[in-house]
């Protein structure tokens, strides 16, 4: 894109097209976050005595519902639980409560982001969490497709075939990653106001700090 180097030519470190795209994306995300931050509702959620706490509590409770159902399904697919119940029965019957939990968890998660948008947008952990969430979703869809295609041949086996067990293990690991990065958002280890290497500013999308770093 020809416009990119022109926009970024005053920043030495961002003079490659890839860096420039990254910078533009980060600036756009930060503008959006500042737009949310300026809204009255965002401030009210953040500064309310109980509302933020209740949203976060609901987030944890729905996480328990969603992950709880997911664990039951994944443990069955690993051959570690419910060996005498058909795998397809577990997957199909628990799908609905799991999706209800996921929906509520995402809604409350969006509200938590909306309450503290600028810091969250520039949180390295939040960015990793979103990436892991997307990977976990892709794995879930791929896993579901693989399972539906082959379930007839192993449905009643206490221990499903290797490719199904691998998918279930990947699911648990990815969601564990989502949980740990969700928790570490609260820590300020890599917040933009800290003195960090350029790579960390880049990863966290600290636009102003990257510009200051480059102009030194």
């Amino acid at each position: 894109m020809a416009v990119c180097p022109a926009l970024c030519d005053n920043v030495q470190r961002s003079n490659t097209e890839e860096d420039c795209h990254n910078r533009m994306l980060n600036e756009w995300l930060l503008s959006l976050a500042r737009f949310f931050d300026a809204q009255n509702w965002s401030t009210q959620i953040h500064e309310s005595i109980y509302l933020y706490a209740w949203i976060e509590t609901t987030h944890v409770l729905t996480l328990m519902v969603f992950l709880g159902m997911l664990f039951v399904i994944d443990l069955r697919m690993l051959g570690l639980a419910f060996p005498n119940v058909r795998a397809s029965v577990i997957a199909e019957r628990l799908d609905k409560p799991m999706m209800i939990g996921l929906t509520l968890m995402v809604i409350t998660g969006v509200l938590l982001y909306y309450a503290i948008p600028v810091r969250t947008t520039q949180s390295l952990w939040f960015r990793i969490k979103v990436m892991l969430f997307v990977l976990a979703a892709i794995n879930a869809f791929a896993f579901r497709a693989r399972m539906q295609a082959s379930v007839g041949s192993w449905d009643t086996d206490p221990k499903p075939p290797r490719h199904i067990r691998m998918g279930a293990a990947a699911s648990i690991l990815l969601w564990a990653g989502v949980v740990v990065t969700g928790r570490t958002i609260a820590y300020d280890w890599f917040d933009c106001h800290k003195e960090l290497p350029y790579a960390m500013y880049w990863a966290a999308g600290c636009v102003d700090e990257m510009a200051a770093f480059a102009s030194e």
């Binding site: 159902m69 664990f71 740990v180 928790r183």
Partner: peptide, 23 residues
């Protein structure tokens, strides 16, 4: 933070088993 992750995962496993049984 990692131990806290295990705490939440343990809670989810327990919650999942309780919910499946009770539902």
């Amino acid at each position: 933070a990692v131990v806290q992750m295990f705490h939440l995962l343990g809670m989810s496993i327990l919650g999942g088993m309780v919910l499946v049984g009770d539902l």
